[in-house]
Design a binder for these strands. Structure first.
Lengths: 241, 241
DNA sequence: GGTCGCGTGATTGCATACAATATAGCAAAA
DNA sequence: TTTTGCTATATTGTATGCAATCACGCGACC
């Protein structure tokens, strides 16, 4: 059975990332407890956890306040992800690609090829790409076999819009969205090739450069705030959006 | 005034890192609450926080259990620190060293030079080196100006023996301890030089290579478990020590 | 009219009560 | 002797009560 603390934590995190609270807004325990149908205790637990994750911050006078994020912070977090995923890619290249990993990577690549085979993409295609993209990134991080690295990436991915697929919901409404995703997929191909050849430096550089697309997506979102707000409600947490 | 939660959190973390609990041991709330003179509520809060930090893990049947660490995990965590500090060093080199940062780095370097000026080191010298070492590393990370990077390094440093000075208490009892520390200090000099010259790649490589000394210290500790246990009680948490 | 002080209400931090669940111990049977 | 089932105990998860503190609003005074 699911405990109240985990349920409240998941639901509250979801509310936050969907922009249910405005930046700076006080997160009072009682209203949240009522809304999520629990007592204050699990809400308190969840709030301390979310503080660790960096989504809320403790107010000096007690209680918690919704954090405000800047475009710079998002860019920084993506840069950190790129650097860490670069390390993971290098480790995988150095250790060698197992048969299992090779097959799993191939599945991702072929699925992507199929998605881009047609002249246009359906919404299902976009959703499938997001799922595949997450899987591809997780495969490489997991295959690096470094627990601290996996943990560091996971913790960094909790920051808003830092994760690999965080900005992808924008793409269907972007003129060049399909092209950007196609380019990202070609980078996946190149990265898998580098991994298989044991080219550690190339793999690291590709993984790191790969995040430039995410960074340009953030820039695009900030330049089109009304569109971004609609597709990514969490954008409300970003100052200047 | 300090709240109970922060006091309990700090004290409980301290107990854990001093090896007060055996790996796998159940961390029952009531005994901990009595020992720290608080109720179960702040203890629960602290336990969830420590779970986030990776020091304790949730038991499937409820409650928390002391984690067991492996030498591999420590080595991995140090490697992650090296990679992240390497990124910080590169960023600082690329952005340029401000006058303030240059002065602060110089203070560290000169203090280290003074410590190593004499033929032998007192215990105070060792303590001063540890403080200076921490300051040096924090200066560079802070100067990188990337909040997500600072956070990732801090979170990683919460893992046992991952932080820059975590293994240093061993050195006074190590035959070559002074030499290792001297070598580390020369690397600090080289790193500061690379930063000032704007040599990003060199700075990154130096910062990453710098952690090899920490990794060899871990190996030395594991080869001398009885000594390590005495100087670093937290070694009790490491399997095979 | 603006600012300071005060009081009331709301909210947090903490402790504790209670119910559900897991654990441990013991007895009985195979 | 070992295993199984039952019971009693211990521990957790959750809710709630209480005191301290903080925010806010109102009135008085400058």
């Amino acid at each position: 059975m699911e405990t109240q603390q985990t349920r409240v934590l998941v639901q509250l995190r979801d509310l936050i990332l969907k922009g249910h609270f405005a930046p700076g807004e006080r997160l009072a325990e009682i209203p949240i407890a009522e809304q999520l149908d629990a007592s204050r205790t699990p809400v308190r637990l969840a709030l301390t956890t979310l503080e660790q994750e960096g989504l809320v911050e403790a107010s000096s006078s007690g209680g918690y306040v919704m954090r405000r994020f800047t475009a710079q912070e998002i860019d920084d977090a993506i840069a950190v992800r790129g650097h860490l995923e670069g390390m993971a890619a290098r480790l995988v290249a150095e250790h060698g690609v197992t048969r299992q990993l090779g097959n799993d990577l191939d599945d991702c690549l072929k699925q992507g090829d199929r998605i881009f085979a047609g002249p246009s993409m359906s919404l299902d295609d976009y959703a499938a790409y997001i799922e595949m993209n997450n899987r591809f990134h997780e495969l490489i991080v997991g295959a690096a076999g470094n627990a601290a690295l996996t943990r560091a990436i996971e913790l960094n991915n909790r920051l808003p819009f830092a994760a690999a697929s965080a900005m992808l919901p924008m793409q269907p409404s972007h003129d060049e969205g399909r092209n950007w995703m196609w380019m990202a997929h070609q980078q996946h191909h190149a990265l898998a090739d580098a991994l298989r050849r044991g080219e550690g430096a190339r793999a690291q550089a590709l993984a790191e450069e790969h995040t430039q697309i995410a960074r340009s997506n953030v820039r695009y979102a900030l330049e089109n705030p009304e569109l971004a707000m609609k597709l990514l409600p969490g954008m409300r947490l970003v100052a200047g959006a």
